[in-house]
Design a protein around this nucleic acid. Structure first.
Lengths: 239, 239
DNA sequence: GCAGAAACTTGACCTGCATCAATACAGAAA
DNA sequence: TTTCTGTATTGATGCAGGTCAAGTTTCTGC
């Protein structure tokens, strides 16, 4: 029992730099442990929440990989993002008290369940946490603006470059290779996110491969010439 | 002097149902008046803030009409939204303490300047306001997801339908006609928002007009068959 | 192991929208 | 009023990426 409590604590979590505000004392962190109520496992293919579900909690991803997607009445699906360890999902539910998209695990995952009432209560007590929550939501808004730019203005090669560079950069921040990655999503899901068809995704991968920019074998990708990718499109050089 | 104080107060503002949490007592509302520090006039064509400006405040639009847009290094511009009276802009600046897009007035405008420090302080004191701020940010995230769906999955006619229906619905909520509107933006700006070229916007307007769905004369638009528009694409029937 | 399904690749062809270009129109300034 | 400038419309043409289709590879369940 004590062991379980220990395990659930943010203060002892190796992802706390990603989830939690930085620069907190150990004591403050321990107080914030209470925002997380429980953990929840979500196995590959299962949904953490779906459109219409009533909203109660935010989720911090501990392990695994998610996609979020919305769909129109006629069945068209739009992937709105891919999320990995340390990232927070569920923010879409706050406006209307019910979720507005589906969150699907693309590999076996575990999330920390943070009842939003706890988050708000703690935020009132700890300005640092309050600011942190605001920053997380604002970051999501800025990310969305980047996706709009991608979908509205970029060509297929630029989209895929931006996508790969973004993924590898986030993976690198989590201690993974800067040049090698295993895609957790299908070509169709990449296409949905990037506003192109799966065939075009595949063709663009092949083109990059032929040009020696990357090496691809199904879901495994190695970036051979990061500079060439950045020349096609550099998400960092966004003003 | 007293008159000026009176004028700036949220408690006496006719837009408070749009900006402020509903169901507050007059007394509570008066306490919240302090979130607004000043007013600021922005004339047509001027920017309220631009990418890179340091972030200090959110802005509630009192009168006028804005666009927000991001641009890439090579000069491509993406309009990320159009905002009207009662809506809050500036949320993009919270993450990094500097703004991430430009906010340009499309007609002479006036905004209420709400220093973010005030907003956060008041939020700690008034849970209703805290919740309200969270909802506003979440609403923006949900709106962005809708734009992604638009840009990623829709055809030109669907995009323009969704755009017109959304605009007229928001205008109607502000007491304007449900069927007639004057566009505040150019065809190019509409195109940028919808991920299409100005010529395509113009052609699509003409097509709708030929089909008797709308009547267009430059920026003035009258919706003759709202149902026909909704059949092309209904933003409400979004699941 | 094998069978079937799912995911991926590649080719051939097509189309919706972009591009280029010319003209029309409206508001602002002189 | 006229001219100027920014904006909008419309036509002709081209192409990036969509669509359709066939074949291959990988994964999964038995």
């Amino acid at each position: 029992m004590l062991l379980e409590t220990y395990k659930v604590a943010c203060s002892n979590c190796n992802l706390r730099e990603l989830c939690m505000p930085i620069g907190l004392s150990q004591e403050e962190l321990q107080k914030l442990d209470d925002v997380v109520a429980t953990r929840r496992k979500v196995s590959q293919g299962e949904t953490l929440y779906r459109n219409g579900d009533s909203f109660t909690s935010l989720y911090a991803i501990r392990t695994g990989f998610f996609k979020t997607c919305v769909s129109s009445q006629d069945g068209r699906e739009q992937v709105t993002g891919f999320q990995m360890a340390g990232e927070i999902i569920g923010l879409d539910g706050i406006t209307s008290d019910h979720h507005n998209c589906n969150a699907v695990a693309l590999e076996d995952a575990e999330v920390c369940v943070m009842p939003f009432a706890n988050v708000e209560e703690m935020s009132r007590e700890f300005p640092v946490l309050q600011r942190h929550v605001h920053k997380i939501m604002s970051r999501e808004i800025v990310r969305d603006q980047g996706v709009m730019m991608l979908l509205g203005n970029m060509r297929a090669e630029e989209r895929l470059s931006a996508f790969l560079l973004n993924l590898v950069q986030r993976l690198n921040a989590r201690g993974f290779s800067r040049s090698e990655l295993v895609l957790r999503m299908t070509r169709e899901e990449i296409g949905s996110y990037l506003g192109m068809k799966l065939e075009t995704v595949s063709r663009t991968f092949s083109k990059f491969s032929e040009e020696g920019i990357i090496e691809v074998k199904q879901r495994w990708v190695k970036i051979l010439k990061p500079d060439a990718l950045k020349r096609i499109f550099d998400p960092d050089s966004f003003c």
